[in-house]
Design a protein around this nucleic acid. Structure first.
Lengths: 140, 140
DNA sequence: TTGGATGCAAACTTTTTGCACTGTG
DNA sequence: CACAGTGCAAAAAGTTTGCATCCAA
């Protein structure tokens, strides 16, 4: 079963409606484990489904719906805008302020921090997809 | 010497121009170690310096300038908008997604993470002022 | 004196809302 | 068939830009 089918099944199992629009937005998010802005999604859809244009309104509403159901995360990437991605393979980003390089950071790095925050503040922090800034090895 | 004077001196020492507008924006950021949106700053200035109104344009430009010089940090607080604060007393926020409570998190919590990221990726991460989301003790 | 800073107005980007219409379950 | 989902148009919010004017150094 593809990732797309798996997600659609889980949504149906929850009693959520699956429309054509929802289906193709989810399909676009499945590609390459992508981080997409609303514009990225629209550009992708124009290319892949030119016969089925979606309004921005709908894309925003579908993303909000997927976020509420914890199927996608939303991350503010600064100048790159706000990106959405499926909560499948959890990971994060280190972004170099000097050269702009993006390094993928493993979620394991945050295990201790989650525990620490829980122990110290009784707070269950949700770190789904961070973008952290700084200087990369080459620029230091 | 006040915090304001200290900042102004450091700016002058760098050869930066200190205008009336820059001075009063910095003064507003000095109050209460504040986290302010552009609107917060404007409201504060209207109250404290009604004889010297600033355009939003100018406030944005001054904040960008202070950010470039690493005198302030910028943090996206989601629905609360984008806030700016002086990089003096470093700390962070835990924000409850259920009740909206904001808990101040000590910077000590991130010491290990900084070290870990440096060791693993050779990346010097700059965690000046984070806003992390999750569920607070009461809502769990 | 002069280059940088400012104010205004307008444009621009991103996101949200109201309402009539559509289509899924 | 009912009601949730959608599209359109418009508004709202937040931020940026061009250009003429102003002022700190």
């Amino acid at each position: 079963m593809t990732e797309l089918d798996s997600i659609l099944d889980r949504l149906k199992a929850k009693g959520e409606r699956v429309t054509i629009q929802r289906r193709i937005v989810i399909e676009s998010l499945c590609k390459d484990n992508a981080h997409l802005t609303v514009n990225d999604i629209q550009r992708y859809l124009q290319h892949e489904f030119p016969e089925q244009p979606l309004s921005d309104t709908t894309v925003y509403r579908i993303l909000q719906w997927l976020k509420d159901l914890e199927f996608v995360s939303q991350t503010d990437m600064g100048t790159m805008g706000t990106v959405y991605q499926l909560l499948q393979h959890r990971h994060h980003h280190l972004i170099c302020l000097t050269c702009g390089a993006e390094i993928e950071m493993d979620d394991d790095c945050l295990v201790e921090l989650r525990q620490l925050i829980h122990d110290k503040y009784g707070f269950k922090v949700r770190l789904d997809h961070l973008a952290l800034y700084g200087q990369c090895h080459d620029c230091l």
